[in-house]
Protein backbone atom coordinates (compact mmCIF):
# COMPACT_ATOMS: atom_id res chain seq x y z
CA UNK A 1 0.00 0.00 0.00
CA UNK A 2 1.67 3.21 -1.10
CA UNK A 3 0.35 5.18 1.84
CA UNK A 4 1.83 2.91 4.50
CA UNK A 5 5.27 3.69 5.87
CA UNK A 6 6.41 0.73 7.90
CA UNK A 7 9.71 2.20 9.04
CA UNK A 8 10.74 5.07 6.78
CA UNK A 9 10.05 8.65 7.93
CA UNK A 10 8.17 10.95 5.63
CA UNK A 11 9.99 13.91 4.14
CA UNK A 12 9.53 17.34 5.65
CA UNK A 13 6.00 18.50 4.83
CA UNK A 14 4.77 21.35 2.67
CA UNK A 15 3.96 23.68 5.55
CA UNK A 16 7.51 23.43 6.84
CA UNK A 17 8.74 23.95 3.29
CA UNK A 18 6.73 27.17 3.15
CA UNK A 19 8.27 28.40 6.39
CA UNK A 20 11.79 27.42 5.45
CA UNK A 21 11.61 29.18 2.09
CA UNK A 22 10.47 32.53 3.51
CA UNK A 23 12.30 32.36 6.85
CA UNK A 24 14.81 35.12 6.28
CA UNK A 25 12.69 37.57 4.33
CA UNK A 26 11.26 39.60 7.20
CA UNK A 27 7.66 38.53 6.82
CA UNK A 28 5.19 37.21 9.33
CA UNK A 29 4.32 33.64 8.36
CA UNK A 30 1.08 32.31 9.77
CA UNK A 31 0.05 28.67 9.60
CA UNK A 32 -3.68 28.19 10.11
CA UNK A 33 -3.40 25.11 12.29
CA UNK A 34 -4.44 23.96 15.78
CA UNK A 35 -1.01 22.96 17.05
CA UNK A 36 1.91 20.78 16.14
CA UNK A 37 2.99 22.38 12.86
CA UNK A 38 5.04 24.96 14.72
CA UNK A 39 6.80 22.53 17.02
CA UNK A 40 7.40 20.01 14.24
CA UNK A 41 8.85 22.68 12.02
CA UNK A 42 11.14 24.35 14.47
CA UNK A 43 12.34 21.10 16.02
CA UNK A 44 12.90 18.84 13.04
CA UNK A 45 12.82 20.96 9.91
CA UNK A 46 14.62 24.16 10.77
CA UNK A 47 18.26 24.72 11.70
CA UNK A 48 17.85 28.47 12.36
CA UNK A 49 15.09 28.63 14.96
CA UNK A 50 17.21 28.92 18.08
CA UNK A 51 19.62 31.54 16.77
CA UNK A 52 17.87 33.62 14.15
CA UNK A 53 14.61 35.51 14.44
CA UNK A 54 11.70 34.74 12.15
CA UNK A 55 8.08 35.63 12.81
CA UNK A 56 6.49 32.24 12.29
CA UNK A 57 3.29 31.49 14.15
CA UNK A 58 0.30 29.19 14.16
CA UNK A 59 -3.28 30.32 14.53
CA UNK A 60 -4.16 27.84 17.31
CA UNK A 61 -7.35 26.89 15.52
CA UNK A 62 -9.93 25.16 17.72
CA UNK A 63 -12.76 22.83 16.81
CA UNK A 64 -15.59 25.35 17.07
CA UNK A 65 -13.83 27.92 14.91
CA UNK A 66 -13.01 25.19 12.38
CA UNK A 67 -16.57 23.90 12.24
CA UNK A 68 -18.25 27.29 12.13
CA UNK A 69 -15.68 28.80 9.80
CA UNK A 70 -14.93 31.62 12.20
CA UNK A 71 -12.40 33.43 10.04
CA UNK A 72 -12.91 36.64 12.00
CA UNK A 73 -10.78 35.48 14.89
CA UNK A 74 -8.03 34.37 12.54
CA UNK A 75 -8.03 37.74 10.79
CA UNK A 76 -8.16 39.76 14.00
CA UNK A 77 -5.31 37.77 15.51
CA UNK A 78 -3.17 38.33 12.43
CA UNK A 79 -3.87 42.05 12.36
CA UNK A 80 -3.12 42.42 16.06
CA UNK A 81 0.13 40.46 15.76
CA UNK A 82 1.19 42.47 12.72
CA UNK A 83 0.65 45.73 14.58
CA UNK A 84 2.75 44.36 17.39
CA UNK A 85 5.61 42.77 15.46
CA UNK A 86 5.82 45.06 12.41
CA UNK A 87 6.65 42.54 9.67
CA UNK A 88 7.51 43.50 6.08
CA UNK A 89 4.76 41.31 4.68
CA UNK A 90 2.37 38.54 5.74
CA UNK A 91 2.14 35.08 4.24
CA UNK A 92 -0.53 32.53 5.12
CA UNK A 93 -0.39 28.75 4.92
CA UNK A 94 -3.13 26.16 5.14
CA UNK A 95 -3.46 22.85 7.01
CA UNK A 96 -5.90 19.92 6.78
CA UNK A 97 -8.94 21.33 8.58
CA UNK A 98 -9.11 24.75 6.92
CA UNK A 99 -8.42 22.90 3.66
CA UNK A 100 -11.38 20.60 4.29
CA UNK A 101 -13.78 23.39 5.13
CA UNK A 102 -12.70 25.42 2.12
CA UNK A 103 -11.37 28.45 3.97
CA UNK A 104 -11.05 31.36 1.56
CA UNK A 105 -7.42 32.30 2.07
CA UNK A 106 -7.31 34.67 -0.87
CA UNK A 107 -10.23 36.59 0.58
CA UNK A 108 -8.64 36.59 4.00
CA UNK A 109 -5.37 37.85 2.50
CA UNK A 110 -7.22 40.73 0.88
CA UNK A 111 -8.89 41.72 4.15
CA UNK A 112 -5.62 41.47 6.08
CA UNK A 113 -3.88 43.54 3.45
CA UNK A 114 -6.55 46.22 3.65
CA UNK A 115 -6.45 46.35 7.42
CA UNK A 116 -2.70 46.27 7.90
CA UNK A 117 -1.50 48.05 4.79
CA UNK A 118 1.05 45.27 4.38
CA UNK A 119 1.42 42.95 1.40
CA UNK A 120 -0.34 39.70 2.28
CA UNK A 121 -0.47 36.55 0.21
CA UNK A 122 -1.55 32.95 0.48
CA UNK A 123 0.76 30.04 -0.18
CA UNK A 124 -1.08 26.95 -1.38
CA UNK A 125 -0.43 24.22 1.15
CA UNK A 126 -2.58 21.70 2.99
CA UNK A 127 -0.04 19.61 4.93
CA UNK A 128 -0.58 16.71 2.54
CA UNK A 129 2.49 17.25 0.36
CA UNK A 130 6.21 17.28 0.87
CA UNK A 131 8.42 20.28 1.45
CA UNK A 132 9.31 20.75 -2.21
CA UNK A 133 5.70 21.66 -2.94
CA UNK A 134 5.40 24.07 0.00
CA UNK A 135 8.72 25.80 -0.63
CA UNK A 136 8.08 25.99 -4.36
CA UNK A 137 4.66 27.55 -3.83
CA UNK A 138 6.13 29.96 -1.29
CA UNK A 139 8.88 31.18 -3.62
CA UNK A 140 6.38 31.52 -6.46
CA UNK A 141 3.78 33.37 -4.39
CA UNK A 142 6.44 35.67 -2.97
CA UNK A 143 7.82 36.45 -6.43
CA UNK A 144 4.40 37.20 -7.83
CA UNK A 145 3.47 39.47 -4.96
CA UNK A 146 6.69 41.23 -4.16
CA UNK A 147 8.89 41.56 -7.24
CA UNK A 148 8.88 44.60 -9.48
CA UNK A 149 10.63 44.89 -12.85
CA UNK A 150 14.18 46.23 -12.59
CA UNK A 151 15.24 49.48 -14.18
CA UNK A 152 18.54 47.99 -15.26
CA UNK A 153 20.31 44.66 -15.27
CA UNK A 154 23.41 43.78 -13.30
CA UNK A 155 26.03 42.45 -15.69
CA UNK A 156 26.79 38.83 -14.94
CA UNK A 157 24.25 38.85 -12.15
CA UNK A 158 22.58 35.61 -11.20
CA UNK A 159 19.87 34.52 -8.80
CA UNK A 160 20.19 31.29 -6.91
CA UNK A 161 16.72 29.76 -6.67
CA UNK A 162 15.66 26.93 -4.39
CA UNK A 163 18.29 27.25 -1.70
CA UNK A 164 16.93 26.29 1.71
CA UNK A 165 18.66 24.49 4.56
CA UNK A 166 16.27 21.62 3.98
CA UNK A 167 18.24 20.71 0.84
CA UNK A 168 21.43 22.73 1.08
CA UNK A 169 22.22 22.67 4.77
CA UNK A 170 25.95 23.07 4.23
CA UNK A 171 26.30 23.76 0.53
CA UNK A 172 28.68 26.47 -0.57
CA UNK A 173 27.74 27.38 -4.13
CA UNK A 174 30.59 28.00 -6.49
CA UNK A 175 29.91 30.82 -8.92
CA UNK A 176 31.75 31.01 -12.25
CA UNK A 177 34.31 33.76 -12.64
CA UNK A 178 32.81 37.02 -13.85
CA UNK A 179 29.44 36.23 -12.33
CA UNK A 180 27.99 37.80 -9.26
CA UNK A 181 25.15 36.72 -7.02
CA UNK A 182 22.32 39.21 -7.08
CA UNK A 183 20.01 37.26 -4.81
CA UNK A 184 19.85 33.97 -3.00
CA UNK A 185 16.41 32.40 -2.55
CA UNK A 186 16.58 32.17 0.33
CA UNK A 187 19.29 31.04 2.76
CA UNK A 188 21.77 33.41 4.37
CA UNK A 189 20.04 36.26 2.61
CA UNK A 190 17.70 39.19 3.25
CA UNK A 191 14.53 40.78 1.91
CA UNK A 192 16.53 43.63 0.45
CA UNK A 193 18.72 41.22 -1.51
CA UNK A 194 15.88 39.05 -2.75
CA UNK A 195 13.92 42.03 -4.03
CA UNK A 196 16.81 42.77 -6.42
CA UNK A 197 16.21 39.51 -8.25
CA UNK A 198 14.64 41.06 -11.39
CA UNK A 199 17.93 42.86 -12.09
CA UNK A 200 19.76 39.57 -12.60
CA UNK A 201 20.62 38.26 -16.04
CA UNK A 202 20.34 34.64 -15.19
CA UNK A 203 18.65 32.25 -12.74
CA UNK A 204 20.30 29.14 -11.36
CA UNK A 205 17.88 26.51 -10.02
CA UNK A 206 19.56 24.54 -7.23
CA UNK A 207 16.61 22.41 -6.19
CA UNK A 208 13.13 21.58 -7.41
CA UNK A 209 11.78 24.17 -4.97
CA UNK A 210 13.16 26.94 -7.18
CA UNK A 211 11.81 25.80 -10.52
CA UNK A 212 8.37 27.44 -10.41
CA UNK A 213 9.83 30.81 -9.40
CA UNK A 214 12.41 30.49 -12.19
CA UNK A 215 9.68 29.89 -14.75
CA UNK A 216 7.77 32.86 -13.41
CA UNK A 217 10.81 35.15 -13.59
CA UNK A 218 11.46 34.02 -17.14
CA UNK A 219 7.93 34.92 -18.11
CA UNK A 220 7.65 38.12 -16.09
CA UNK A 221 11.16 39.55 -16.36
CA UNK A 222 12.72 37.64 -19.24
CA UNK A 223 15.34 36.01 -17.04
CA UNK A 224 16.49 32.67 -18.47
CA UNK A 225 17.24 29.84 -16.06
CA UNK A 226 19.34 26.73 -15.95
CA UNK A 227 19.43 23.76 -13.65
CA UNK A 228 22.40 23.38 -11.32
CA UNK A 229 25.40 22.21 -13.31
CA UNK A 230 23.19 21.70 -16.38
CA UNK A 231 23.04 18.13 -15.20
CA UNK A 232 20.47 17.04 -17.76
CA UNK A 233 23.06 17.67 -20.50
CA UNK A 234 25.22 14.86 -19.16
CA UNK A 235 24.09 11.61 -20.80
CA UNK A 236 23.66 8.75 -18.37
CA UNK A 237 22.77 5.10 -19.08
CA UNK A 238 20.55 2.63 -17.26
CA UNK A 239 22.33 1.26 -14.24
CA UNK A 240 21.83 -0.60 -10.98
CA UNK A 241 23.53 2.23 -9.12
CA UNK A 242 21.01 4.62 -7.60
CA UNK A 243 20.88 8.02 -5.99
CA UNK A 244 17.69 8.41 -4.04
CA UNK A 245 16.45 11.83 -2.99
CA UNK A 246 15.49 15.24 -4.36
CA UNK A 247 15.76 15.22 -8.19
CA UNK A 248 17.86 18.31 -8.93
CA UNK A 249 20.48 17.57 -6.32
CA UNK A 250 20.50 13.87 -7.13
CA UNK A 251 20.73 14.61 -10.87
CA UNK A 252 23.57 17.04 -10.25
CA UNK A 253 25.52 14.49 -8.23
CA UNK A 254 24.86 11.74 -10.77
CA UNK A 255 26.17 14.00 -13.54
CA UNK A 256 29.30 14.92 -11.59
CA UNK A 257 30.04 11.24 -10.91
CA UNK A 258 29.55 10.42 -14.57
CA UNK A 259 31.86 13.22 -15.64
CA UNK A 260 34.54 12.44 -13.11
CA UNK A 261 34.47 8.63 -12.99
CA UNK A 262 32.40 7.52 -15.96
CA UNK A 263 30.07 5.65 -13.65
CA UNK A 264 26.34 5.70 -14.26
CA UNK A 265 23.93 6.40 -11.44
CA UNK A 266 20.17 6.58 -11.94
CA UNK A 267 18.09 8.95 -9.89
CA UNK A 268 15.19 7.68 -7.82
CA UNK A 269 13.29 10.88 -7.19
CA UNK A 270 11.53 10.50 -3.87
CA UNK A 271 10.15 14.03 -3.59
CA UNK A 272 7.15 15.36 -5.46
CA UNK A 273 8.27 17.93 -8.04
CA UNK A 274 9.95 16.10 -10.93
CA UNK A 275 8.52 17.41 -14.20
CA UNK A 276 11.37 18.27 -16.52
CA UNK A 277 13.96 17.35 -13.92
CA UNK A 278 14.71 13.70 -14.71
CA UNK A 279 16.68 11.92 -17.42
CA UNK A 280 15.23 8.92 -19.25
CA UNK A 281 17.12 6.50 -17.01
CA UNK A 282 15.69 8.04 -13.85
CA UNK A 283 12.35 7.37 -12.19
CA UNK A 284 9.96 8.90 -9.73
CA UNK A 285 8.82 6.91 -6.69
CA UNK A 286 6.14 7.68 -4.17
CA UNK A 287 6.16 6.11 -0.74
CA UNK A 288 8.16 3.49 1.08
CA UNK A 289 7.02 0.45 -0.88
CA UNK A 290 7.78 1.96 -4.28
CA UNK A 291 11.22 3.12 -3.18
CA UNK A 292 11.99 -0.26 -1.63
CA UNK A 293 10.99 -1.98 -4.86
CA UNK A 294 13.04 0.43 -6.97
CA UNK A 295 16.11 -0.25 -4.85
CA UNK A 296 15.66 -4.00 -4.79
CA UNK A 297 18.24 -4.79 -7.49
CA UNK A 298 20.72 -2.12 -6.42
CA UNK A 299 24.46 -2.63 -6.47
CA UNK A 300 25.33 0.81 -5.08
CA UNK A 301 23.00 3.29 -3.39
CA UNK A 302 23.70 6.90 -2.48
CA UNK A 303 21.12 8.35 -0.15
CA UNK A 304 20.13 9.55 3.25
CA UNK A 305 21.00 6.92 5.91
CA UNK A 306 17.28 6.39 6.49
CA UNK A 307 17.03 4.72 3.10
CA UNK A 308 19.46 2.07 4.25
CA UNK A 309 16.56 0.73 6.35
CA UNK A 310 14.77 -0.34 3.16
CA UNK A 311 17.79 -1.15 0.99
CA UNK A 312 18.91 -4.67 0.05
CA UNK A 313 21.68 -5.93 2.29
CA UNK A 314 23.75 -6.84 -0.74
CA UNK A 315 23.98 -3.25 -1.96
CA UNK A 316 26.86 -0.97 -1.06
CA UNK A 317 25.32 2.03 0.71
CA UNK A 318 26.94 5.47 0.58
CA UNK A 319 25.57 7.82 3.22
CA UNK A 320 24.50 11.27 2.09
CA UNK A 321 22.39 12.75 4.91
CA UNK A 322 19.59 15.02 3.77
CA UNK A 323 18.07 17.32 6.39
CA UNK A 324 14.59 17.12 4.83
CA UNK A 325 14.63 13.36 5.40
CA UNK A 326 16.58 12.56 8.57
CA UNK A 327 16.34 15.97 10.23
CA UNK A 328 18.76 16.44 13.11
CA UNK A 329 19.82 12.80 13.26
CA UNK A 330 22.86 13.08 11.00
CA UNK A 331 23.14 16.82 10.72
CA UNK A 332 26.82 16.84 11.61
CA UNK A 333 27.50 14.49 8.68
CA UNK A 334 25.78 16.63 6.04
CA UNK A 335 28.46 17.58 3.51
CA UNK A 336 28.95 20.48 1.15
CA UNK A 337 27.21 19.04 -1.91
CA UNK A 338 29.61 20.89 -4.21
CA UNK A 339 32.50 18.87 -2.83
CA UNK A 340 31.90 15.44 -4.37
CA UNK A 341 35.19 14.13 -3.02
CA UNK A 342 33.92 14.61 0.54
CA UNK A 343 31.12 12.08 0.21
CA UNK A 344 31.70 9.93 -2.85
CA UNK A 345 34.59 7.66 -3.59
CA UNK A 346 34.44 5.30 -6.52
CA UNK A 347 33.74 1.78 -5.15
Amino acid sequence: MKKAYKILPVYTGDVSGFASALYELGGMLVIHDPSGCNSTYNTHDEVRWYDQEALIYISGLNDIDAITGNDGKFINDIVRAAEDMKPEFIALANSPLPYLNGTDFKGISKIVEDRTGLPCFYVKTNAMHDYTVGASEAFLAFAKKMLEPADEKIKGGINILGNTPLDHTNTGFVIPEGKTIVSDWAYKTSLEEVLKAPSAEHDLVVSSTGLAAAKYMKEAFGIPYELMGNYLDVKREKSRNYIVGEPVISGFIAARIKERYGTDFNVIAATEITDGLLSDCDRKCHGEDEIREALSDAEVIIGDPMFELISPKSAKFIRLPHFAMSGRLFRKEIPDLMRLEDYYHEP
Binding site: M1, I7, T12, G36, C37, T40, A127
Partner: peptide
Protein backbone atom coordinates in the same frame (compact mmCIF):
# COMPACT_ATOMS: atom_id res chain seq x y z
CA UNK B 1 -1.20 14.03 6.66
CA UNK B 2 2.43 14.35 5.69
CA UNK B 3 3.26 17.50 7.61
CA UNK B 4 1.57 16.28 10.79
CA UNK B 5 3.37 12.94 10.46
CA UNK B 6 6.78 14.51 10.33
CA UNK B 7 6.80 15.57 13.97
CA UNK B 8 5.78 12.22 15.38
CA UNK B 9 7.92 10.04 13.15
CA UNK B 10 11.01 12.14 13.83
CA UNK B 11 10.28 11.95 17.54
CA UNK B 12 10.41 8.17 17.23
CA UNK B 13 13.51 8.36 15.06
CA UNK B 14 15.33 10.53 17.58
CA UNK B 15 14.39 8.04 20.29
CA UNK B 16 15.89 5.24 18.20
CA UNK B 17 12.48 3.57 18.13
CA UNK B 18 11.57 3.53 14.43
CA UNK B 19 11.13 -0.24 14.56
CA UNK B 20 8.15 0.34 16.89
CA UNK B 21 6.62 3.07 14.79
CA UNK B 22 4.70 3.07 11.51
CA UNK B 23 2.47 5.44 9.66
CA UNK B 24 -0.30 5.70 7.12
CA UNK B 25 -0.15 8.95 5.19
Amino acid sequence: ADNCMRGVVMTAAEMGELSRFSSVV
